[in-house]
Design a protein around this nucleic acid. Structure first.
Lengths: 180, 180
DNA sequence: TGATGATAGTGGCATATACCAGTTTCGTGA
DNA sequence: TCACGAAACTGGTATATGCCACTATCATCA
């Protein structure tokens, strides 16, 4: 095992000395949450700088991509707001708020379901699809640069690990620990 | 090499078929940025649920922890707003906004520098340090549960990879690709 | 010493994200 | 068919985060 970033000593909570030692040795990246946020902000900057020419923020481009993915999906629930929110691991209302500027700018439209009037589907307009494609071309530059720099295999392994963390199964298992 | 999440085929941008294939095969986690955001939102939920009893949001707890780290640091610039922002890979103004509620609630105070009146240092109040410690105890529960579930070595490797992505060196190398 | 450019931070605006309360619609069972 | 609970969204409020314009202060140099 690589010892540069070992796990927390068992007595970190009860021993101030051990805790201090852990912080000084590993700093911020000792916390999974902190490490994730730091990396996310950095990648947001780097990818965002590359794709800024499209006028889309990174979350907006991701959302448009999800919309296209949902449209191509065989699952009819994929494009509903609830389905999208679940896919993006996002709060439903947060998704609604995020969609607002995209609807305002004519990239996305909401289509009520004919059979269940509670349900709405989000759909890319032609203008939105064009914008998504524009953003995708820029995104690809950033993605390739990242892979070249970080290493293709390492990048794939990182994304694989992140997918596990994000998965429903992981969340369910984590929450089950609550009962113990 | 594990082939479940290989890198992008070189013609992904120019071949609609290849692009479609990539999306269908790997879905959202094919994009580093998306994978990071999904995982961050998930971990934010899981860690946040565990530590909600402290009344701190995850970013707030992280910020208080940085403040303690900066106070213990030998570097006098560590606790300045600019130093903190750099350490957290955050925009200076974003840090200022995030500090507002913590100052309002009496957890943090801003102390102007005597020699350079442009500079301000952020400092934990006793109340803030107590709140940080309270949050830390809860955080430790989440952190241990994560490590137990994800695997201690895998968790350490993940955090190590994220630290590389977040590093200044990585950002500088990535941006240098711009000139090529 | 005064002009000038750099640095630190603030405030405004916009998007990102979450929680909660409320509304509309649906499904189910008496 | 009607009451009632569940489901899907909406809107309000709060924090999270970033960009830009602006102010105050400092450092440098003619």
């Amino acid at each position: 095992m690589d010892e540069r970033v070992p796990t927390a000593p068992e007595d970190a909570a009860t021993s101030p000395a051990a805790e201090k030692w852990a912080w000084e040795k590993w700093g911020w990246d000792y916390c999974t949450n902190t490490a994730l946020r730091r990396a996310t902000r950095r990648i947001g900057q780097l990818y965002g700088d590359v794709s800024a020419a499209s006028g889309l923020t990174p979350p907006q481009h991701i959302l448009l991509s999800h919309l296209k993915l949902a449209a191509d999906s065989a699952d009819p629930a994929a494009a509903t707001l609830r389905g999208l929110a679940a896919a993006m691991i996002m709060d439903l209302s947060a998704l609604g708020h995020t969609l607002k500027p995209l609807i305002r700018d004519g990239y996305v439209e909401l289509v009520p379901d004919a059979r269940d009037r509670r349900v709405k589907r989000a759909r890319l307009t032609p203008k939105g699809e064009a914008k998504r494609a524009e953003g995708h071309a820029l995104w690809l530059v950033a993605q390739r640069r990242f892979d070249a720099l970080f290493g293709p295999e390492e990048a794939a392994a990182l994304r694989r690990a992140l997918a596990v963390v994000a998965s429903e199964e992981f969340a369910a298992a984590f929450r089950k620990g609550d009962a113990e």
